[in-house]
C-alpha cells in the first residue's frame, strides 16, 4: 500500500537528497548517502513521490548516483540493496537486455556505476514465454571500463554471453513492463531536473552578461530561446506528474520521450545562450549536457520512443484518450 507524503515533507526530502548527492565525491558515496537518508524505504512505501523527488534531485545536482537500479529492482519485486545492481536495456531500447539462445544468454545492455562493487545483478531475459528476471553473479557481467562521453561514468555498455546455467530464478513478481514504465518516469524526472538546471544557468548568464551596453537577456532572440525551453519543460513535467496517479505504460513512455525532448531543446538553447563560456571545460554546463545525452538513451529515447508509440497507434488504428479531467 502506497502512502502519501505531503508537500512540506517532500520539499524537506528534496533538499536533503540534493545536499547529500551534491556533497558525495562519487556514485558509490552518493548511493550510500541516499540509503542513509532512507531512500530504499521511501521507494518501498511511496514509490511514485519518492522516485519523482529523488530523480529530480539527481538531475539537478548532476550526481552519478545509481538510483535507477533500485527503481527497477523495486518494480520487479527484487531486493533493493547497495550490493545489487540491474542490467538495463541497450541504448534507445526498452526490451529485456538478455536473450536466451539455447544454453547461452546473450546480454546486450547497460550497467550503472553500482555494478562495479555489486555482488548480484538482476537480469531480464526474453524467452518464448515473455520476459523473466533472474539473479546473476555481477562479476560475469562487469568487464573492462569504457570511458564514453560522460566524465562521471554513470552508465556503461555491457555486451557479453553468459551460460544459461548462471541464471538463478527469483521469487519476485513484478513485470518487465512495469519496470520499464517505472524507470521511464524516474528518468523523465532526472532529465527535467537537469533541464531546469541548464535553463537556470543560461538565465543567470543572460542577466549577468552585458554586450552593447545592456544585458543579453534584454534581446528578444535570447528571451524566446529560454521561453521555448521553459514551455517544453513544463509540458513534459505535467505528463511526468500525471504518471503519479496513472500507471498507463504509454503515459510513462510519453513522459520519458517528452522529457528527453525538453532536455535536448533546453541543452541546445542553453549552450547558445552560454556562448563561449559554455563551450569551455571550466563551466559545468558540459557535465549536464553529457549526462543528458546518456540518460536520454536509457529505456528508449526522445528519438526511439515516438517510433514505438507510433507503431502501437498504427496497429490499433486509433489514439487512446489519455489524461482525464
Amino acid at each position: 500500500m502506497s502512502q502519501f507524503i505531503d508537500a512540506d515533507d517532500l520539499a524537506l526530502l528534496a533538499s536533503s537528497f540534493e545536499a547529500a548527492m551534491a556533497d558525495a565525491p562519487g556514485p558509490s558515496e552518493a548511493d550510500q548517502a541516499m540509503y542513509d537518508l532512507g531512500w530504499a524505504e521511501l521507494l518501498a512505501s511511496a514509490p511514485g513521490q519518492g522516485t519523482a523527488t529523488a530523480f529530480s534531485a539527481l538531475g539537478a545536482t548532476g550526481s552519478a548516483a545509481s538510483l535507477l537500479d533500485d527503481v527497477v529492482a523495486n518494480a520487479l519485486g527484487a531486493e533493493t540493496a547497495l550490493e545489487s545492481c540491474c542490467v538495463f536495456p541497450a541504448p534507445h531500447k526498452a526490451d529485456a537486455p538478455g536473450h536466451l539462445h539455447g544454453d547461452t544468454v546473450i546480454v546486450d545492455g547497460m550497467l550503472s556505476a553500482r555494478a562495479e562493487a555489486a555482488v548480484t545483478a538482476v537480469l531480464g531475459v526474453g524467452t518464448e514465454n515473455g520476459v523473466g528476471h533472474f539473479a546473476v553473479d555481477a562479476g560475469l557481467l562487469y568487464g573492462p571500463a569504457v570511458n564514453g562521453i560522460d566524465p562521471g561514468r554513470a552508465y556503461r555498455r555491457v555486451v557479453v554471453e553468459i551460460p544459461a546455467g548462471a541464471l538463478e530464478p527469483t521469487a519476485s513478481e513484478g513485470s518487465w513492463e512495469s519496470a520499464v514504465a517505472g524507470a521511464r518516469v524516474a528518468l523523465a524526472h532526472q532529465l527535467l531536473g537537469g533541464a531546469r538546471w541548464m535553463l537556470g544557468e543560461a538565465r543567470q548568464h543572460a542577466i549577468d552578461r552585458a554586450q552593447f551596453g545592456r544585458p543579453v537577456a534584454s534581446f528578444q532572440a535570447i528571451r524566446h530561446k529560454l521561453a521555448d525551453s521553459l514551455v517544453q519543460i513544463e509540458g513534459a513535467a505535467s505528463v511526468a506528474g500525471a504518471c503519479l496517479h496513472d500507471s498507463d505504460p504509454m503515459l510513462a513512455a510519453l513522459a520519458k520521450s517528452l522529457a528527453g525532448q525538453a532536455a535536448r531543446t533546453t541543452a541546445t538553447h542553453a549552450q547558445q545562450v552560454l556562448a563561449g563560456i559554455g563551450f569551455t571545460a571550466e563551466h559545468r554546463f558540459h557535465l549536464w549536457l553529457k549526462r543528458m545525452l546518456v540518460v536520454d538513451t536509457l529505456f528508449g529515447s526522445a528519438s526511439s520512443i515516438p517510433v514505438e508509440i507510433g507503431q502501437h497507434l498504427l496497429s490499433e488504428g486509433t489514439a487512446p484518450r489519455l489524461i482525464q479531467l
Binding site: 509540458g235 525532448q261 515516438p306
Partner: peptide, 18 residues
C-alpha cells in the same frame, strides 16, 4: 511514419496534461 505520429501525439498529450 510511426515516428512522426509519435512526435505529434506526445505534444498533444503534453498540452492535454498541462
Amino acid at each position: 511514419a510511426a515516428k512522426a505520429l509519435g512526435q505529434a501525439f506526445q505534444w498533444i498529450v503534453a498540452f492535454r496534461s498541462r
